[in-house]
Amino acid sequence: MLSLASVSAYLDVANSRWLWLSTLPVVLVVLLQASIFLRRAWSDGKEMGLSEAQLKSGFKTGVISAIGPAIAVLVGMLALIATVGGPVSWMRLSVIGSVAFELPAAELGVSQFGYSLGDDDISEVAYATAVWTMTLGGTGWLLFSAFGTPHMEKLRQKMGNGREKLIPVISSAAMLGAFAYFLTGEVAAGTPETGSVAAGGIVMLILLRIADERDVQWIREWALGTAMIVGLVVGVALQVTVGSWW
């Protein structure tokens, strides 16, 4: 792709036609699985006594309900597109991923070479490390769902021996520890980054609180997207006004 005065050279590779092509097969598998399951559910469902009208209504509702959240995901995708390019963003968010996993994974990849996402001069090797990290990290969910799903009922029963209350504590602590590490890196980068971190956190807290109090699902779906946009505006505002104090 043509790029004049490119901000980051690696993004030319990241947005190249070859990368778009390389993401097609796996996305096609996702669609293939959906159509295999859909056909079988349709015919077996009829045999089980579900009416054509019920099946159609289920399909239509699935389509309509997906549009809002998918647009919300698209907004979140901006951060990935700006850092790892269009094709990989599309693939990662159509297969397994969520912005909350892919961004940290990419950050861990480039940080092996002392870069941080958003640096202008990220090398191609660092970018490739980010791609490998996102890919390998995502296979955990796929492998476990591929082999574990038929045994899920037994696994659940095994876990219920009093320790299951500790699981949310431990998994939240793992997330908090990791994101604390990501945060301190951003805070060390400068005042605008710090402002963006704080704005993102505060907006999230406010929106989740409103969503809980009024029990509104769409606010939850839009919370991350809104937090990103406000964080972006605050970061730019600080950059053009006070610059960085450290």
Binding site: A79, P104, G118, D120, E186, S196, A199, A227, M228, G231
Partner: peptide, 11 residues
């Protein structure tokens, strides 16, 4: 590139 990522981390 610079300010979306910190906002996501903060959120």
């Amino acid at each position: 590139g610079s300010y979306l990522v910190p906002a996501v981390f903060g959120a």
